[in-house]
Design a protein around this nucleic acid. Sequence first.
DNA 1: CTGAAAGCGCTTACAG
DNA 2: CTGAAAGCGCTTACAG
Lengths: 332, 332
Amino acid sequence: MSNIREVSRVAGVSTATVSRALSTPDKVSEKTLKKVYDAVEKVQYRPNMMAQNFRATRAWSLMVLVPDITNRFFATVIQGIEDTAQKNGYSVLLGDTRDSEQREAEYIRRVETRQSDGIIQLRPHHKGDPKPAEHLKIVNACGCEGTPYDCVRIDNVGASRAIVDHLIDMGHRRIGVISGLADNPHSIDRLKGYHQSLAAAGIAPDSSLITHGDFTLWSGLQAAGHFTRMPARHRPTAIFSMNDDMAIGALQGLKNASLRVPDDISIAGFDDTEYARFSDPALTTIAQPGYDLGRCAADRVLRLIEGDEDATADIVLPHELILRQSTGAHRK
Amino acid sequence: MSNIREVSRVAGVSTATVSRALSTPDKVSEKTLKKVYDAVEKVQYRPNMMAQNFRATRAWSLMVLVPDITNRFFATVIQGIEDTAQKNGYSVLLGDTRDSEQREAEYIRRVETRQSDGIIQLRPHHKGDPKPAEHLKIVNACGCEGTPYDCVRIDNVGASRAIVDHLIDMGHRRIGVISGLADNPHSIDRLKGYHQSLAAAGIAPDSSLITHGDFTLWSGLQAAGHFTRMPARHRPTAIFSMNDDMAIGALQGLKNASLRVPDDISIAGFDDTEYARFSDPALTTIAQPGYDLGRCAADRVLRLIEGDEDATADIVLPHELILRQSTGAHRK
DNA sequence: CTGAAAGCGCTTACAG
DNA sequence: CTGAAAGCGCTTACAG
């Protein structure tokens, strides 16, 4: 592994000149430049970024804290983050927390020890979470309203209202919900939208219509059981699942119980992952701009890191209701 | 941001002693230890890993080169890598190449400039690829036979044979293939297995039965069109798709053409991602040990980095044929 | 058990 | 335009 001293020796100049030739070539004469470049070529010099970064006190990397990398929606957000990071010369460190607080703490420690310049957190900030240390550059992507630091998100309450309104417009009055974990802020916000829609339509809420999963395919299948086991007249005629994966899982549960979708029961998802389009029937869902959420969040941490920014931002990106075949009119 | 000098000042000892107290406490007296720990606490000292790593010439990070992070199979492999890395004190740098050679080159450059200690490459090594530089610590996960450096993989030829044999056992003789890109080594190996099975059963190959996708859901849908547009008597009675995503895409194409699976046509996938179980009908497929492939590959680079190893390894992990409802007996 | 000193590979203010 | 020198935060061989 050659270093700058070796280059300077071969080129017959000082290390300072080599450094300048490489970083600020217009401060160096043509002739010297050539000598340096030739020497770089000759000794196959590659700068030692560990040394460079150490000196510059900049790791040029971003830590992404993601609950579950196999979740396609999160993977899309990460693509947005990575493209932006890459474009700005930053690397992305993967922190797959698997919802473990201990793992999350370990990753955050890496940022505190300067292995990373900033954090993008993909799980929503819970009400009870401690506020992150003042000096941490952190942005929440896919968060919720009320996050006490920078946050890029959609209007979860409004999106939820849009989808429940759609179901109500189709004539449904008994609308079931497959929520995420009860204390998850996404669950809370989307449930709020659900209740707002019911209230606006004059439909009395019924807690037996609400069941909880954990955003995985499996939990969606389990959740469907809650509804299929109900006597038919109590059963909802439509279900709002808080993500596509649980909706896809539920689809299987409904079919196992010989319920036809949407003829016997409608179901809608949330996220518009690629699989939503390929389920049978294709899912009505809310399209979240995953890639853009990642891109914006990355832009934001980068500005925090560069120090261009101090005011806390709450950026809300648009969502869109996507109508497909899994929802249909209520049939008497 | 406090540093070791500040700690030494507060503790009233030298920086050397602080360093020793933190890394080799048994070389330091009890009394001094306490003074140091108190000072660390008082000034909220966090070691600067950039300095530590620079001095140790070890980045403590692994670069993962992945063609597409949204592919669930790859995401699972990455979980195996990350758990192993984490356990050994390494971070994972994400290099989502999107099949771009330019991006791949940029990521490799990061390793050459010592931002990372080693590489795990998730795309298979192509015959024509240049051999990576001698000093690079690189392991191929999910590779193919004949990779000229360390490789952890399954027996793609054998797995392909297992699935095609199954279709033949069910009475199918016209077996279509949805391959990946023609020059992809996985495509090549799996096609080889397909041909071996046909030959063993005395079935003449028919190139009109082979079509190509790119391992995405969409391309599977396109590929299905190739078969549904055929006159019925030329159409295959079973299809082997080289991954689950394309099979799921194809499922939709077959349904659009009013073909029932498996009554009119059988289809099998490859990978056994979580979605294979939740498609309708659930997919017959080959289970690849994605998590273990990642774990083994990470173990391997780690050994390369630690210098415990020099012989090139070719590690083959077991696969398994998973029978579900998407394949059935051939009906006359 | 402890401290003074050197050095990892780089960059930059300073002087010429 | 160029070089000598200092310094980023840490560790460790050396001497005591």
